[in-house]
Design a protein around this nucleic acid. Structure first.
Lengths: 346, 346
DNA sequence: GTTAGCACTCTTTTAAATTGAGTGCTAACA
DNA sequence: TGTTAGCACTCAATTTAAAAGAGTGCTAAC
């Protein structure tokens, strides 16, 4: 009782998915039979649809309604049936990135443009520093009891912190510490800096004063990236109201909460980040997503690389019947704009 | 044909508002007649309600339904009828602020706690630097073609920027510039630094090299606050789904968009900021709000002051029938926790 | 001034009837 | 053997009608 997915079946499945994308309503045999390059009657379509249902590519919401694509159906569509679609993307190309903005402004704008361009919800993760190296460290005196520590990494990202002193510290010591920090940490990858290393530095500092220890700890804290919290910008959350299948109170509320919290999105992105494949694009459909509230959604993500090792993710969240082609194209376009953007800026 | 708002009328209005807050349904004369300390029949209440309607404190959504409070009614309630309510707030008191966190983390948390505590949407604006003074400026060399500028103000807030040089700059010049900047700008209020001042500095720098000019411009840009964009954290946007009168697709979508965009909230906050009254608390009801999408909401805001001149706003957005008493109490509590929080931290 | 009573209004709820899209099956056809 | 017309059947969605319920305004009596 197993069927072959022949050419006609594929064509019909594709027609079903395409139609469903537009309307959001279950699609019936009659509708498909009118579909251009497929000159068969609705009865024939019905037979084929019956087969496709049994094969699990489409689903009948109730006895007497049309069919809608299953996750498996969408998956086949994304993997095989989808043809690239080159139009409308030009808009993005012109609309975008002014070199003068700061990185976070650019990323916020990317989220916004992406959302308004696709009519889905968009997210952009701020690149993690992981893999970047320390380029410059400086301790400066603000006043007798305050220092400021500034750390610049090789992507020109700056972190800093005020250090409150409990005891005085003379200028010479500060100079010495600066030298120590720079000779020992310059060029060291951020993630290699750990407690052991700091302990060794404290020893080398020679002086066992607790003030020095405090300062070194503070510097370490400045450098250390909060590995946990990836920052995420979102935009267009309310676009989900455009799609009735996501727009009832229950679902909409849960989904928008997920966007608002961002933590789960961050987890999703982090997951994705560790992977390493050629295109940098991935598609999650429905239950494939690790986030329960999103089981009626699809998510398409792309990783971009601002500079050496500075890697972030852009993504689109929409209904399962999202227009995968244009989403993929939009993401590709933005990815290529972001890749290498940072070459000469903050 | 004008009535006096006597004691009984006030009592009845208060009862109507209280009841409506709970149920969200128009409330009828019968319901009120059962209300404890008011031993009159529903017919009497009806007469009084008729008066109150004519006076504009309550509204009849349609001929044969109960009454709901009008904006004017709520206003009276807030201004006169509301009695302070001291319970449940203790929770906030314990729940809150760990001194160790950074300011932005604290503020995000405040928004979250406020939202989950009240079941309304919450917003927190990040304090503007306006009024703060410059405490410390330092230019440091990162490498031959890059400097980093660090500016610390008297609230210990740090801003910084990488400066790309087009021409080399020797160490002596950097030292000279540092001296120049610190002697001239130290203690100067941030908002007093303008183009004229920078021009004068350039002159004083003596050297007419364009490199120096570039550096000074960059430093100015670092100091300059983006006056336009107040940053705002929001939380609990989806709480609006708890209130049917706000939860239909149309309104919910618009409201959530407003939260997401934040620009309009920022404008609201900025407006508020210029005011100067004793308590720092204000209540906007319905049409009193300058934001069209919020005409069915009420907003309560409180300004807090982290340190000298570092002033921000916390606010609650909810349905007009929000529980003004506990909202006001919650805000007061958080305000008092935030006030003066910054005394010794970043 | 207060209240019981009642007719009237209008929304909400409930139930029933109708419509309509779509299926599955059968029998006929090429 | 694959395709198709035809038809009975199913089930959600829509329409329609009826009933219920909540609340008011007014009147007349206390």
């Amino acid at each position: 009782m197993s069927f072959r997915l022949d050419d006609r079946k594929k064509k019909i499945l594709k027609a079903i998915i395409r139609t469903y994308m537009e309307t959001g309503e279950p699609v019936g045999s009659r509708t498909i039979s009118k579909y251009a390059d497929l000159n068969v009657s609705s009865a024939t379509i019905r037979n084929e649809m019956s087969d496709l249902t049994e094969m699990g590519y489409i689903i009948q919401p109730h006895t007497s309604a049309g069919r809608i694509p299953s996750d498996k159906g969408y998956r086949l569509y994304v993997d095989e049936l989808m043809k690239e679609k080159e139009d409308e993307i030009a808009e993005l190309r012109s609309l975008m990135i002014e070199q003068t903005d700061k990185v976070d402004k650019v990323l916020k704008k990317v989220a916004k443009v992406l959302a308004s361009n696709t009519n889905y919800a968009a997210m952009v993760s701020v690149p993690q520093y992981r893999g970047s190296r320390i380029k410059f460290i400086q301790l400066s005196r603000v006043n007798t009891r305050q220092l400021v520590a500034v750390v610049v990494n090789d992507n020109n990202l700056i972190r800093n912190q005020i250090i409150e002193l409990v005891d005085d510290m003379d200028d010479e010591t500060i100079l010495k510490l600066n030298l120590l920090l720079n000779t020992n940490l310059n060029g060291v990858p951020v993630q290699d800096i750990n407690l052991g290393m700091i302990a060794r530095l404290k020893e080398q500092a020679g002086m066992h004063s607790s003030v020095v220890a405090t300062v070194l700890d503070a510097v370490a804290a400045t450098i250390q990236v909060d590995q946990e919290d990836v920052e995420i910008y979102t935009s267009g959350a309310t676009n989900i109201f455009r799609y009735p299948e996501l727009a009832d109170k229950e679902k909409a509320s849960e989904l928008i909460s997920t966007f608002e919290e961002k933590q789960q999105l961050a987890d999703l992105v982090k997951d994705r980040m560790s992977d390493e494949d050629n295109t940098g694009l991935s598609v999650y459909i429905g239950e494939e997503l690790p986030i329960r509230t999103m089981k009626d959604c699809s998510v398409v993500t792309a990783t971009y690389e601002l500079g050496e090792g500075l890697r972030g993710t852009i993504g689109i969240i929409g209904p399962k019947r999202m227009d995968y082609e244009s989403v993929v194209e939009s993401l590709k376009e933005l990815k290529s704009q972001l890749d290498g953007l940072l070459t000469n800026k903050t």
